[in-house]
Design a protein around this nucleic acid. Structure first.
Lengths: 322, 322
DNA sequence: CTGTTAGCGCATTCAC
DNA sequence: GTGAATGCGCTAACAG
């Protein structure tokens, strides 16, 4: 293994000079810097992260925090794609991605604390946000740098990245109304009514108003086992001729029920996927992708920016109809 | 921050004694060990991983390697659940989970090499296996400890964990035939024909033979856009009265097509999910879970066992019909 | 069973 | 602009 010492000797300079040169310290002349750097990669030098972290008191690691869950509730590749985007940026910066994941908030919190105390991790990306989340609270009070992906807790000024979900809702609905000639749309959401759903629904409202049509709203209780209520609702609303679903799975769940009641009837659907492929019936589905990988990449860029006095910095990632 | 030095001083012993006691070195008397340990956590001592890794030449990290993919092709929470299982074991052992993920094999390989060279990671879990995978090759030749989740490359003796897919295939099929009174089953697989699919299909074959019924086999090209072929096949096989699908998504894809051709007709389905929930129509779906979290946990246990001379050690994780 | 000593590889004071 | 010296926190010879 070639150390900084080796390259110092071969270059005929001291270790400290080598160190400075490799770290782009301005006190080193451009000439020697170049010389040392080229020598370094000629020798195949790679810095030892552990030594570096030990002296710097901070490791080359960004912690990625998953939401607490016993098992995956949804078939949701959002996180994987986000990790891909995150890691792409991290690799450029010679950083490594570590994850904190577990069944309960407490488990994850312990995990995060271990990263901070033992591994000296100072930067985190939160893949979710809950109101009054103990983990976010910990990060805040510990003065650690972190970025939220999604809608952040409104009572704090955390940095975050997300999509403009109002615009996405409006755009999808508009497509349905103006291109697919829908007159009686329904917005299908989950019963959780997450912030992003509310936003998309707000966009839905704007579009329906603009087109002067009446929009319905239906929250679906459990995706995997829609209740009778949904069927009753469908029976009572035979005039529905298009769906905007806050999520692909919800759209599919609704459509399954609809199909049973009105077999063969067409029903165009716009939904917001998190970029995955499902075996969807024919071409009735129109998905809007929110580019999870881009969200991840943007969050990572942001987490490397120094914390701002005011906080609450925000990157908006575009969406696109597929 | 309290260091090992602090606890050594307060305990009135040398630093090395403290270090040994904390690391359960047998050369330390039980008395002083206990004394030092209790003092340590009374003072809230946490070891500095970076210092530890620097001296040991190995870091407290297990690298988890994802398959190369541009974007998630499937709505597959398998990986997330596996990570949960992995991290649970890692946390107990005071280890941290780092991931290597990217679009191409080369990117990921670079990622892995960086982990090895810069961060001194020595243990890995491969979340997939391809024949002649450059990453597995690298790990092998570099003499690193790794465990494969799934069916390993047959030409090597790598350690691995997986399910008994033949038994799972047989059990699911048997359920269909004996409990649901199916007489003309079809096995639906992907066109890739992965090893785990072949195994489940072999189990399907065993069960159909045992029940003296004729089993069909249909590979489906692309889940998200089944071709005409599938419809033609369905038209030509009206007698089919039950499905075993190698995967939930495939089952759903087939069923969507079937439904269009024979609306209202019942068609019981047994499929192997990787434990996620989809909006499935009614109760016709019978899922067999393969416990991805258990696979992850078992792989992690195995990766901490010293490499065996012969290699090829193997943990079998049970499955269960939900 | 325990203490002394010497690094691990690197960054960073402080000198020059 | 560069070098010498010191130490980050911990483990591991080598002694006793």
């Amino acid at each position: 293994m070639v150390t900084i010492r080796d390259i110092a000797e071969q270059a005929g300079v001291s270790v400290s000079t080598a160190s400075r040169a490799l770290n782009d310290n301005p006190r080193i002349s451009a000439v020697t810097r170049r010389k040392i750097k080229s020598l370094a990669d000629r020798l195949g030098y790679v810095p030892n992260f552990n030594a570096k972290s030990l002296t710097r008191g901070e490791s080359n690691v960004v912690g990625v925090i998953f939401p607490p869950e016993k098992a995956s509730e949804q078939a949701n590749p959002f996180f994987i794609d986000a990790m891909r985007g995150i890691n792409q940026v991290l690799t450029e910066r010679k950083y490594v991605l570590s994850v904190a994941i577990g069944e309960t908030t407490q488990t994850i919190l312990d995990n995060v604390i271990a990263m901070v105390d033992q591994a000296k991790v100072k930067r985190f990306i939160l893949l979710y946000s809950h109101e009054n989340d103990p983990i976010a609270n910990y990060l805040r009070t510990a003065g650690l740098r972190f970025v939220v992906i999604g809608e952040p807790d409104a009572q704090y000024q955390d940095d975050y990245v997300n999509n403009d979900n109002v615009a996405a809702g409006e755009m999808g609905t508009d497509y349905l109304l103006s291109q697919l000639n829908v007159k009686r749309p329904v917005f299908v959401g989950s019963e959780e009514d997450w912030q992003y759903e509310r936003d998309r629904r707000a966009g839905f409202g704007k579009a329906t108003t603009a087109h002067q049509v009446v929009g319905q709203y239906l929250p679906i209780p459990a995706v995997e086992q829609p209740t009778k209520d949904v069927r009753v609702w469908i029976h009572e609303h035979p005039q529905i001729d298009g769906i905007v679903a806050s999520d692909d799975l919800l759209g599919l769940a609704f459509f399954q029920q609809w199909q049973l009641i009105y077999p063969g009837k067409k029903l165009p659907i716009v939904s917001y996927n998190r970029s995955f492929k499902l075996p969807l019936p024919d071409l009735q589905f129109h998905s809007i992708t929110l580019f999870p990988a881009k969200l991840g990449a943007a969050a990572t860029e942001l987490v490397f920016k120094k914390a701002d006095e005011n906080g609450g910095r925000h990157t908006v990632v575009p969406f696109k109809m597929l």
